[in-house]
Design a protein around this nucleic acid. Structure first.
Length: 678
RNA sequence: GCCCGAGUAGCUCAGUCGGCAGAGCGAUUCAUUCGUAAUGAAUAGGUCCGGGGUUCGAUUCCCCGCUCGGGCUCCA
């Protein structure tokens, strides 16, 4: 007899040798049918695992994140099984579940690649495997045997050697990962046992690894757990092939990655595919063209946009709103040039740690002038232009500063990742004591502005002191980190902590917004900086007459004006709220006789500062109405004979029913109310 | 930067097994004067991404380049 505990606190007795599947069956038929894996004292195990006495069990179904994760992971195995079956000589690397689905990395003999037709074949084969309802069978073997089982699969062998400690794990690949990283933080060898050791421990000590086999001829190295059999899978679709470096390292081989999506039910799969289609419909590059906002002439080069009148108008409104808020928020506006000599970037450290993302210098008069990738050093120059007293602090400088960054050509993506963009960049110089309250009011300010643009759903991340090397005294880090945490809490913001995720020069908060279709966009950043004040030897005079070092806070709110515009465009699917719409109303005279009245209506609205156009009657009314709708104009106003007589308009708003005979004054009031930022 | 895919009219795309380049939408003009998401007709519009090669002949085949798209963070 074994006694197990259930999540509701009850206990249940089962015969010796009973499995998690038996437990599920003893609880209910439906649970037995839906069960995928179990969690034993929180550790995920196969349903076929024997129950342990005194252990608490939770049965996991596809209704939970963990269950879905398993489902996707198992589907990835079936993908590998199909590929290895269909492509003799193919080898496979890793195939984890990811957000919404899974992938698996392969290498085909002779560097061959998958085509779209291959994907169809593979998917068909996967469906056969699923139809055969093959059980997933776990086996634990020692690493020597595993190396034999995977003799033809070098990537698997590498993993076995790494996790079992059998081979000579190569030097820590993490050390060179972060381009922002610390000047002095060279890897100290052996100091980061981190992830690898955890894996090895999980895989079982003593060089034992686990494998999962299904069907006659397929076995994969895997921690598990897996669904009981392939028949539990099926609501999936293969999506695309992409190149991916082995272990994400551009010095290692490029593998062929197949991405798929997988869900618990056909309905969920369909909903996901619909979300993808919706995202494509909202693609800002497409909307930018359709609404005549922005374009990317090839002649300019990758990642460089030109703003057409309507796009420029919306941008102008965004910038004006931002300026207005900053003006009343205690900021002082500055301008700085687009170039600076190399010595500035040497002092700031950018040339040491950021050079590959900078445009190359222009050489003249014996100096090297670099286009700026950041505004910070210029603002530091302004701070340093005179003596500062504690009475001057906090000093909040603000600039819409155009910066240029040499993004990888493959990374450039419309307005969301461009090579020239404008940061709404603020640098706040404060005393250490001011930091907590300054952070709190900063965060409130940021959220308030984001809300004005229609975002209400935020998720924040607090990144704390990195373990390896950090500048600044620990007590300063604590003060700043606790200040950030207090700011998050007083703002009532949901946040996660990324321990050790901060830059070497200070902790930070990143704020993500969730858009209308549930996608998260990282926009705002509050970054505390102990480094630049040091590098540029900044100081202020304290009340006691001694010189002290200020703390710098970098703050981007939109992040980049261009990117924020792109996110807004996708969030609203092009239908900007009235206050941002480039054209707020289109007046449609029913016939030529009403043209004069239409012009009069337009003029009256324009006199109130509203943006109004008139569509003359040389095309049918329906067509003109459609044209305005396609351009997502908030108000379509139709005026005919009865309106001329009564001083009214027919109001066809973007998102409501048409109303006839609305007095012009009423319309005006309604539009003016909407035309102000909230 | 690297892997895969794609570049044909302003846009979306068809097409040419190597032989005068096509549609729909949009634009322009004319007619139509209409009560709420596509009136009719006509016209204009092309270095078929660029450069080289093969060929009697290349938008089409080959090579090089440019640009765009997907991916290169998710760790058995």
């Amino acid at each position: 007899m074994v006694r197990v505990l259930l999540p509701d606190g009850s206990a249940r007795d089962l015969p010796d040798g009973a499995t998690a599947a038996d437990l599920a069956a003893s609880i209910g038929r439906r649970l037995a049918r839906d069960a995928l894996i179990a969690a034993a004292d929180g550790t995920e195990v196969d349903l076929s695992a024997p129950l342990g006495d005194g252990v608490s069990y939770e049965i996991v179904t596809a209704g939970s994140e963990r269950g879905l994760h398993t489902l996707r992971h198992s589907t990835a195995h079936v993908l590998a099984q199909a590929v290895l079956g269909l492509f003799p000589g193919a080898t496979f690397a890793i195939g984890p579940p990811v957000a919404d689905g899974f992938y698996y990395d392969f290498e085909l003999p002779g560097g061959a690649t998958f085509s779209d037709a291959d994907l169809e074949r593979i998917e068909a084969r996967m469906r056969e495997i699923i139809g055969a309802d093959q059980p997933f069978v776990r086996r634990e073997i020692d690493s020597a045997e595993a190396l034999e089982v995977f003799a033809d699969h070098p990537y698997k062998r590498e993993i076995i050697e790494r996790v079992s400690g059998a081979g000579d794990a190569e030097a820590d690949p993490g050390a060179d990962a972060d381009p922002d990283a610390d000047p002095g933080a060279d890897a100290d060898p052996g100091a980061d046992p981190g992830a690898d050791a955890d894996l090895a421990a999980e895989a079982g000590s003593d060089g034992v690894v686990s494998c999962y086999a299904n069907g006659e001829d397929f076995v994969d190295l895997c921690l598990g757990p897996h669904v009981p059999s392939t028949g539990r899978l099926g609501h999936f679709a293969l999506q695309r092939v992409a190149g991916a470096y082995w272990r994400g390292d551009s010095d290692r081989p490029m593998l062929q990655r197949i991405y798929g999506t997988a869900w618990a039910t056909a309905k969920d799969l369909k909903a996901h595919l619909h979300r993808l289609a919706e995202a494509a419909r909202r693609d800002h590059r497409r909307l930018a063209r359709e609404l005549d906002l922005v374009s990317w002439p090839e002649e300019l080069g990758p990642g460089l946009a030109v703003w057409h009148p309507k796009g420029a108008l919306v941008r102008h409104l965004m910038e004006d709103y931002s300026r207005g808020r900053h003006a009343t928020g205690g900021y002082e506006f500055v301008y700085t040039p687009h170039l600076a000599k190399s010595n500035l970037w040497e002092t700031s450290g950018h040339l040491d740690f950021y050079a590959e993302s900078m445009y190359p210098p222009m050489e003249l008069d014996g100096a090297s002038y670099y286009p700026k990738p950041m505004n910070c050093p210029f603002h530091v120059m302004i701070y340093r232009s005179g003596q500062r007293s504690y009475r001057d602090l906090p000093l909040r400088l603000f600039e819409l500063g155009a910066v240029y960054r040499y993004e990888l050509s493959g990374a450039v993506h419309g307005l969301l990742r461009s090579r020239g963009f404008t940061q709404d960049d603020s640098h706040i110089f404060a005393t250490a004591e001011q930091v907590p309250s300054e952070l709190a009011s900063l965060l409130d300010f940021v959220l308030s502005v984001l809300r004005a643009f229609g975002f209400d759903d935020f998720q924040a991340k607090l990144s704390t002191r990195p373990p390896r090397k950090a500048v600044g005294p620990p007590e300063m880090w604590d003060l700043a980190t606790e200040g950030l945490r207090a700011a998050l809490e007083s703002a009532g913001l949901d946040y996660v902590t990324d321990p050790g995720g901060g830059a070497f020069y200070g902790p930070k908060i990143d704020v993500d917004v969730t858009d209308a279709i549930g996608r998260a966009w990282q926009l705002s950043t509050l970054q505390v900086d102990f480094n630049l004040p040091e590098r540029f030897d900044l100081h202020y005079t304290a009340p006691d007459g001694r010189r002290r070092r200020p703390v710098m806070i970098h703050r981007a709110l939109f992040g980049s004006v261009e990117r924020f515009f792109g996110v807004l465009l996708e969030h609203y699917a092009g239908a900007f709220p009235t206050w941002l719409a480039p054209v707020q109303a289109s007046v449609l005279p029913v016939a030529a006789d009403h043209a004069g009245y239409a012009a009069q209506v337009a003029d009256e609205l324009r006199a109130e500062g509203l943006r109004v156009e008139v569509a003359a009657s040389d095309e049918p009314l329906g067509r003109r109405g459609r044209a305005a709708k396609v351009q997502k104009v908030p108000y379509v106003l139709v005026v005919g004979a009865s309106d001329v007589a009564a001083g009214t308009v027919g109001v066809n708003p973007r998102a409501a029913e048409t109303q006839r005979d609305v007095p012009l004054a009423d319309l005006k009031a309604r539009m003016l109310a909407e035309a102000a930022p909230r």
